[in-house]
Computed example of a mutant assay.
Amino acid sequence: MNKYAPPKFSIKLLHPRYWLVWFSFGVLALFVNLMPYFILLKAGHGLGKLGMVLAKSRVKVARRNLELAFPEKSAEELDPLVEENIKNTGLAFMEMGMTWFWPTWRLKRHIRTVNLQQAIDFENEGKGVLLCHPHTLNLEISARAFAVLGYPGSGVYRPNNNPAYDLVQYWGRTHNGNKLIDRKNLKEMIRTLNRGERLFYLGDHDYGRNKSVFVPFFGVPDACTTTGANLLFKATNCAMIPVTGFRYEKGQYELNLADSIHEQFPKDDVEAGAILMNQAYEKVILRQVDQWMWVHKRYKTMQDENQPRGVRYK
C-alpha cells in the first residue's frame, strides 16, 4: 500500500465520534452558500472578536510576534494591528468555507490578478514554478484561485489526525483541480517541478532546527528558517515566484505574483538562499501586514541550543 495514498471514505467514518465533524462542515457549507459576502465578512470578524476573549494566549502570541518583527512601532501603533489581525484570523474560517464549498462562478467574481502572465510563460516553456506563498490567512483562496483561473498546482500538506476532517480537507483542496502532496514525499515534489508544474512553497514559518539556518526575518536577526527552497531549486532548476492573495476593497482577492527571484537565487549557499527567501516574503507580507498568520510562534526556535524553545514568548 502506498504510504502517501490520499484519504478515502469508509463506513468507519460514520461512527458517532465523527458526527460533530460532519455536522460542522455541513453547517459551514450551507452558511457560506446561502449568505451574501458582506454577511460572511461580518461573521468572520465576529468570530475573531470572540477569539480575542476566548483565546487570549493566541492574541498574546500575535502581539509578541509583531513586537519582535517591528521593534520600532509603539504599543499604540501595534494595538489596532493586533486587533485587525485577530479579526482576520476569524475571517479565515469563513474564507476556508468559501474556498472549499463555493461554486467556481461565485469565487471567480471575487478574484483579480496581477502579473499572472509570467507563470503562464514559464508553463509554456515547460519550466516548473515554485510559488513562494507566505502563510497568509487567506491562503486557501490563493490556492483555489489558480485552479479557478485554469492554472492548478500542487500543495504540500500534513494529514489531519482526525480521519473525517482529513477527508473533508483533502476533498476541499483538490476537487477543483489542485493536487496535494504529503509533506514527507520529497520525491513527488521534485517530480512535480520537473514535469513543469506549479508547487506551492510555504517557507516563512519556524519548522524547527532540522534543515534550517538562522537568518534575519523582519526585526529578528536569527529567525529559524527552512532551507527547503535551496533543495528544490538545486534538484529541479525551477522558477521561483513570490505570491500573495490578499483581500482588498469590496471583497476582492488579488492574486499578485511578484517578479521571479530564481535568477538571483544562490543554490549552493543555503544561508544566502534563506536570506533572499525571507526578504522576498517580507516584501509581499508588507502589502497587507494584518492578513499574515501572526498567531503562529514564528520565533520559537533559538539559535543557542541552550536557550529553551519558545523563550521569546515567556
Score class of each variant (00 low, 15 high):
161 N>M: 11
61 V>M: 10
78 L>W: 06
254 E>A: 11
103 P>S: 00
263 E>M: 10
170 Y>C: 06
136 T>M: 13
269 D>K: 02
307 Q>E: 15
141 I>K: 01
45 H>E: 13
144 R>G: 09
200 F>H: 13
94 M>P: 05
158 R>A: 11
106 R>M: 04
18 Y>S: 01
183 R>E: 09
200 F>G: 10
113 T>E: 05
276 L>A: 13
88 N>P: 02
194 N>P: 07
31 F>I: 15
288 Q>G: 00
242 P>K: 02
1 M>I: 09
96 M>H: 08
184 K>R: 15
196 G>H: 04
167 L>G: 04
74 S>Y: 08
28 L>S: 00
148 V>D: 13
169 Q>M: 14
8 K>F: 07
160 N>Q: 15
150 G>C: 01
6 P>Y: 02
39 I>Q: 07
177 G>V: 03
216 P>Y: 00
139 L>C: 09
263 E>T: 11
205 H>W: 09
244 T>E: 09
103 P>Y: 09
285 I>V: 13
289 V>S: 13
109 R>K: 15
118 Q>L: 00
296 H>Y: 14
200 F>I: 12
53 V>A: 11
276 L>N: 08
146 F>P: 02
8 K>I: 12
283 K>Y: 09
197 E>C: 01
300 K>N: 04
7 P>M: 03
283 K>A: 15
12 K>I: 07
84 E>G: 04
137 L>K: 03
126 G>E: 02
230 N>L: 05
108 K>P: 08
118 Q>P: 02
250 K>D: 14
155 G>Y: 08
230 N>V: 12
41 L>M: 14
18 Y>I: 01
289 V>A: 08
163 P>R: 02
263 E>F: 06
47 L>N: 00
302 M>V: 12
214 F>E: 04
291 Q>L: 06
235 A>N: 13
181 I>F: 00
264 Q>N: 14
215 V>T: 06
70 F>S: 05
105 W>L: 11
107 L>Y: 11
275 I>C: 01
110 H>V: 09
293 M>E: 13
40 L>H: 10
80 P>Y: 02
20 L>C: 09
129 V>Y: 08
34 L>V: 11
10 S>M: 07
1 M>W: 10
17 R>N: 03
167 L>D: 11
17 R>T: 10
105 W>H: 14
163 P>G: 00
229 A>K: 11
186 L>F: 12
301 T>I: 06
216 P>L: 06
30 L>Q: 10
199 L>I: 04
126 G>S: 01
257 L>G: 09
75 A>M: 06
240 M>P: 13
69 A>W: 05
94 M>T: 00
245 G>A: 03
205 H>L: 15
212 S>C: 00
37 Y>G: 05
27 V>F: 10
145 A>E: 01
13 L>C: 06
202 L>A: 15
74 S>A: 01
267 K>T: 04
176 N>Q: 14
148 V>G: 04
140 E>W: 09
186 L>P: 04
175 H>M: 05
240 M>K: 04
100 W>L: 06
195 R>G: 02
198 R>V: 06
42 K>A: 13
229 A>W: 01
33 N>T: 05
207 Y>V: 09
